[in-house]
C-alpha cells in the first residue's frame, strides 16, 4: 500500500530540516575555530529566520500574488519555526540571558515558539472534533443560530401550553432550559467543553415525561432535538473560538518578538565595540 501524501510530506520535510540544521551548524564550527563571534552569526541567522516566519502573515494578505500556495508557506513556516529553536539555543546557549531587554526577548521567543507548537496541535486535532458534529456552522453565524433555536423552543412550549393548558413543561423550560438555550456558555466551557449539562438537562426532561400531557410530550421531543443542536453549536463556538483566540495570541506574540528583536539588533550594533 502506498504511503499517503501527508505522511510522505511529513517524513520528507523532517529529513530536509535535519539536513539543513546539520549543514547550518558547519559554518558555526568554522567561525568558532577561527575565533570569530558565533553569537553574531547565529543572531543574524535567527533574525533572518524570524523575518521569514513573519512573512507568512503578509503572504496571506495578497492571496492572488504568484508567490506559491499559502499551504507551502505554512509548511516552510512550521519547519523553519521548529528549526529556529536550535538556532535560539545556539545563539544563547543553555542559560537565561541577563538584562531586561534580552530576558524579555528570550521570553517572547519561547512564548511564540510554544504558542506555535500548541497551534500545530490545535489545528491538527480540533478540525476532526468539529467534523464529528452533525451540523457544520460558520462561526459568525452562531449568535443568530442560537437565537433561532431559542425562538423555536419558545414557540414549541407556548403552543403546548395553549393546546393543553398544562404548565409542567413550561415551568421546567422557564427555569432550566431557556437559560441554557438562550445564552452562550461560560468561558470555562470554551476551554474545556463537556456534554455534562446537556446530559443533565435531557435526563431531567426524560424524567418529567411521565407528567406531561400529549401536547407537552410532542413539544418535549422537539426540545430534545433543540438541546442537542444547541450543544453542537456551543461546541463549535468553543472550539472555533479557541482556534481564533490562538491565532490572535500567536500574532500578538510575534509582533512583540519582532519589535524586541529589532531593539536587540540596534542595541547590539550600537554597543558591539571592536575596531573602528
Amino acid at each position: 500500500m502506498s504511503i499517503r501524501y501527508f505522511k510522505r510530506r511529513r517524513v520528507r520535510s523532517a529529513l530536509l530540516l535535519s539536513a539543513v540544521l546539520i549543514i547550518a551548524m558547519l559554518p558555526f564550527r568554522w567561525i568558532d575555530a577561527n575565533l570569530w563571534r558565533t553569537e553574531e552569526a547565529s543572531g543574524w541567522t535567527l533574525l533572518l529566520a524570524i523575518i521569514v516566519l513573519t512573512l507568512l502573515a503578509l503572504r496571506k494578505r495578497v492571496p492572488t500574488a504568484p508567490l506559491g500556495r499559502v499551504a507551502t508557506w505554512v509548511q516552510v513556516h512550521l519547519y523553519l519555526g521548529l528549526g529556529s529553536a536550535a538556532l535560539a539555543l545556539a545563539h544563547v546557549g543553555w542559560k537565561w540571558p541577563t538584562g531586561w531587554l534580552e530576558g524579555s526577548l528570550y521570553l517572547a521567543y519561547w512564548g511564540t515558539f510554544i504558542s506555535g507548537v500548541a497551534g500545530l496541535y490545535l489545528t491538527r486535532t480540533i478540525p476532526k472534533q468539529l467534523a464529528r458534529t452533525g451540523e457544520q456552522v460558520v462561526y459568525e453565524r452562531i449568535p443568530r443560530l442560537r437565537r433561532l433555536i431559542a425562538d423555536e423552543s419558545q414557540r414549541s412550549v407556548v403552543n403546548a401550553v395553549a393546546e393543553s393548558g398544562a404548565l409542567t413543561l413550561a415551568n421546567f423550560y422557564q427555569s432550566q432550559l431557556f437559560p441554557y438555550l438562550d445564552a452562550p456558555r461560560s468561558w470555562w466551557y470554551g476551554l474545556r467543553p463537556t456534554s455534562e449539562l446537556r446530559r443533565k438537562l435531557l435526563g431531567e426532561l426524560t424524567s418529567l415525561n411521565r407528567y406531561f400531557s400529549a401536547a407537552e410530550r410532542t413539544a418535549a421531543e422537539r426540545l430534545f432535538a433543540l438541546v442537542r443542536k444547541k450543544d453542537d453549536l456551543d461546541f463549535h463556538a468553543a472550539k472555533q473560538g479557541v482556534l481564533k483566540g490562538w491565532l490572535f495570541g500567536h500574532l500578538c506574540l510575534t509582533a512583540v518578538l519582532v519589535l524586541l528583536s529589532l531593539a536587540h539588533m540596534v542595541t547590539v550594533l550600537a554597543f558591539r565595540g571592536g575596531p573602528g
Partner: peptide, 18 residues
Amino acid sequence: NLDRCTRCDDCVRACAAT
C-alpha cells in the same frame, strides 16, 4: 476536507480580496 479545515475563512477572505 473538514478533518483538515480549521474554519479560518482564509479562503473566503482571499475570494473577497480577489
